[in-house]
Design a protein around this nucleic acid. Sequence first.
DNA 1: CAAGCCAGCGCAATCGTTTGCGGGAAACGA
DNA 2: TCGTTTCCCGCAAACGATTGCGCTGGCTTG
Lengths: 349, 349
Amino acid sequence: MTHPNPVPVPTLRDVAEAAGVHTATASRALNPKTRQQISAETARRVMRAAQALGYQPNSAARSLKTARSSTVGLVIPDLTNPLFPPIVRGVESVLESDGYNVWIVNTDNDEERERAKIESLRSRQVEGLIIATARLEHPLLGQLHEQGVTMVLINRQVDNLRIPAVTGDDATGVAAAVRHLADLGHTRIAHLSGPLSTSTGRVRSRAFRHAVRDLGLPGDLMVECGHWSEADGAAAMRALLARTTDFTAVVAGNDPIALGCYDVFAERGLSCPHDVSVIGFNDMPFLDKLRPPLTTVAVPHHELGAEAARMLLNCIDEPDRAARSVLLPASLVVRGSTAAPRATVLPEP
Amino acid sequence: MTHPNPVPVPTLRDVAEAAGVHTATASRALNPKTRQQISAETARRVMRAAQALGYQPNSAARSLKTARSSTVGLVIPDLTNPLFPPIVRGVESVLESDGYNVWIVNTDNDEERERAKIESLRSRQVEGLIIATARLEHPLLGQLHEQGVTMVLINRQVDNLRIPAVTGDDATGVAAAVRHLADLGHTRIAHLSGPLSTSTGRVRSRAFRHAVRDLGLPGDLMVECGHWSEADGAAAMRALLARTTDFTAVVAGNDPIALGCYDVFAERGLSCPHDVSVIGFNDMPFLDKLRPPLTTVAVPHHELGAEAARMLLNCIDEPDRAARSVLLPASLVVRGSTAAPRATVLPEP
DNA sequence: CAAGCCAGCGCAATCGTTTGCGGGAAACGA
DNA sequence: TCGTTTCCCGCAAACGATTGCGCTGGCTTG
């Protein structure tokens, strides 16, 4: 028989009856926290019965009664962006060991979707939110914060809000990138920043300005990309080249933007790193397989997620502890897209 | 005040009181399915009250009462494997429009983790499972199937079980790859297969055997990789080279295995595609950025997920319809890692 | 021997929704 | 005017687990 039955799933009551005790006793016997209120012998009987019946507690009933769900929501823009899977796994790695589960939702950076997804999470009684989609101005987060929703931000920050956040140390990452280029002898370094409406874009761009200024280099070689994408990176690089060819290195706002540079170099017959050095940001997978392998700033994404999860657990456990944000160190990964500049400037196209 | 209150979340009762009706009426007014049982005027009042209070139905209470959860479980080995995010999004894209939500769990291909995760999903009353981790022999799936759990398999099949599955058409993909190489003039084509304990590995390897046989080419150039990884691909390529250098092309079981070939070629000073042509499988992201860009077989992962979701919805709606499996077409993506063979065989190392 | 204590267990209320059922009132036909 | 239908709506019982409280019986203690 391939279709034997809609096997009636056993409830606590069934277990209790099988063990010859009351449901209350069965409940206590099954819960390690309350098991010592029950005689060892009875507890054993109950657990055996549960095992035999294949009993699984109905988590809906449990969270209805306890007003807890052992679930946290994880809000990300898009899972197919390779940045996020490691973050997800990082979050899960610490939450799971604490008995929590993770609900993942994708917002595609759409405000309406985001609102809807978060509402759905809240109706599922999540005990906290980890949010990796925050824009600088973000009314929704403000509302949630005022309603006392416990949450932690990843990778971005929101203006004027005291929400705990964990981010990569973009500033020192960018500084290391600039310093690396300067050490190679570059003096005219450009920056293709991400959208300045994101905190990441803004932080990295400011860090770049500071870094070049500190080294006494010109700080006017900057273009803002419309999105964090390869296409926008290429467009920005074209815009930069239309303005000037007097630069020998580029710090891209992230890896796709750097890939956009690769595309334009191929178009124009420019050689990387001989004509132009490029540095990306994030250290996405497979960058070491590119031609040339991309020098980039590695951000500890897994640890970012793990730390955010730890902070969230703290917030849940002690709601009125001060919210502290943390910065995780980023590190430069030197590969083949950076080299000493040629003696001359770029050839005119 | 940053810590105003643990705002008491409004319940249906609050809404009902605010609207001056009974909770039953409020419930019916809020549910589009039952709204016509209520006078338009009253329904409006209730909805307004709900809006004003920011009411969100408690989904735990709801699923306790209705014994439904509007949730399906999605079981994958590892989210950081770039194969899976598109599948996830594909699943979500069709499930969401039907009001379902998706629970994602990672098993890391560990049998114990998998069992635990699936139990946790079941205790959450998921209405169905989409499983992308099936091994050929898989006792757990057998049990679940006998218990009447509705589920759909992605990308793999399980021996002897009539579980609906949606998979890429690996056989024609491999055939296309072999045919492409033969058309280029290759006559000695090797295959670095994935583990033969997976249905994917087995199907592709058999397809390779058939394809070369149909073209009258030798079928003895095969090595099995221990895992679907770059390292194991490299090891397999080394093993192959230790055995013979008399081949001019390689069909890899998947993209990372092909990358492993790249690594060994770099070690040995072999040039791809001039000395050896390579074809991967899956068309992971960024393969077009490699040097050389990897020719590969593209599998429609998003559509795989979407179709699996559709099938699962069908199974949920009409449990006793025959389970049909579907095959989605794979297509060859020709890039730079394949070319006509040199006149001579490989140089001796 | 009586009083007190405690360990072990059962009772019953409760969480927030849904839903079958029944009742009151309005509307209708006769 | 009265009976009957129809339309809205309220009543109350679930769903399955948790938990404060109280009861019981066996034990210690003075």
